[in-house]
Amino acid sequence: MSVKGFGGGLARPGFRTLTTGLLLAAALWALYALDSQIQVFSFGDAGPDARSFPRLVLWLLAAVVALRLVLSLRREDDAFRLRPLGRVLAVVAVTILALWLMPSVGFFAGAAGAGIVVSLVLGERNPLMLGLPLVVAAIVAFGGQHGLNIPLP
């Protein structure tokens, strides 16, 4: 969270540029796909239809994001560091895997597995403490299923 000062010339692109660029791309793609994604049936109603508001909002978004990109070209950005980014991707990947498997292996196994990997990624090396996610997942699964009547997978 360090966006400070003005560097000389163009700053090295980092998180902020990446996020802004992604937003711009998403907005432009959505504008392009708008007509195929939103069908309009006419009831002869007056006023804006199902496409008007999304189109307006997307144009506005694209415009302000472009403005942001231009304004912050010279600002120093929060540069990427590869190792930490790898850890983030590991957490995301394991959660995706857990969700993917959840319908077949159940909530307890999926959630406990994800929890254990998260604690490993966060630097847990004590094998006893790795049992903690197991306990939490067991409590949540049992309490949710029986106490709160939620049909967990």
Binding site: F107, G110, A114, G115, L122, L132, P133, V136, A137, L152
Partner: peptide, 9 residues
Amino acid sequence: PAITILAVF
């Protein structure tokens, strides 16, 4: 890890 599990739940 506990927060992750609770978030999924």
